[in-house]
Amino acid sequence: MSQIWFITGCSRGLGRAFAVAALESGHCVTVTARNVNEVADFRQKYGDRVLPLSLDVTNESQAKDAVQSTIKTFGRLDVLVNNAGYGNVAPIEDTSLEEFRAQIETNLFGVIILTKAALPHFRERRSGHFFQVSSIAARIGPIGRAPYAAAKWGVEGFSETLAKEVAPFGVKVTIVEPGGFRTDFAGASTSLREGRPEYEETVGKTVRFQREYNGKQPGDPARAAAALLRLAAERDPPLRIVLGSDAYNAAEKNDLTKIELARKWKDVSISADFPKVGE
């Protein structure tokens, strides 16, 4: 059955791949970007099944207007993909608070703003699916990406709470954690700064790896989009899913390490309780 999709960050990367896959599958899609000219080609190829809109995800009024335009144009909204985001690399010490705020505004508040814009419609219709594009960085805390990781961890906490609140309405939430994909995310869209010499073996090493890794990531954007389409068709989709072999391996290793650490210090953890009666 044809669905109405709304996808942020469609000018390049995963957002563009998601939009192409949805359109090729016969769905209608609102494609958004800061510069609407960067998504004009969608309308030329797919005609009236596309609504191209200019959108700054940090602008609340623009977000509300874009969602309402989608509903007015297509009659409803079924799937919202919160994909827009970016993540620069630099040491925490060399990252200004302005840079922290800018990345958190886009990567976290952008998700919150768009989610709130669509939520009343989903609640009233008692259906809808939020795809919150997070990152494997929301599990592992990657060196050099503190603002990005902080924002994505925030997306995950926000989305877990959202899922519990909207479940009684039949609204679905899926947190998507991509690993490395061959997009522009690690290229021209990202600022890479080694920082001061003291971080040579941590952030500096990460920057050198990122430059070398770009174009060699295992993730295929088209296959990521196919996975998203499959999940959108599921009656009981997962709350969280990793995309890509590197993300899966990193998530598994990280989660097992956390379980082992928790068990190792369990006695200290439970020692913080009030003593039980008789002890």
Rank of each mutant, 00 (worst) to 15 (best):
A146G: 06
N88G: 07
L114I: 04
T161S: 15
E160K: 05
N107S: 00
V111I: 10
G179I: 01
S54L: 03
A232T: 11
I136G: 08
A186E: 00
G85R: 08
G128F: 13
E194T: 13
P120E: 10
S269I: 01
I113M: 07
A117W: 09
V203C: 14
T202P: 11
V207T: 10
G75M: 14
D41A: 14
A118Q: 01
P52I: 01
E98H: 14
L256A: 13
E38C: 04
K164T: 15
N254S: 15
Y199W: 04
E198H: 03
V111N: 03
W265H: 10
I7F: 05
A90Y: 09
A186H: 12
P218M: 10
K276V: 14
I104C: 05
I104L: 10
I136T: 06
T70G: 10
G204N: 15
V268A: 13
E156C: 03
S127A: 15
L256V: 12
L243G: 02
K205P: 04
H129W: 07
F109K: 07
A167F: 08
L256Y: 09
E212H: 13
N214T: 12
V166M: 07
V171K: 01
N214R: 13
G26S: 03
V50Y: 02
T58N: 14
A222I: 08
S11L: 09
A262T: 05
D94Q: 10
Q44T: 15
T183C: 07
T32R: 03
A251N: 04
P178G: 05
D273A: 06
P142Y: 13
A137D: 08
L243H: 02
S159N: 00
L108C: 05
K264C: 01
A66G: 07
W153M: 01
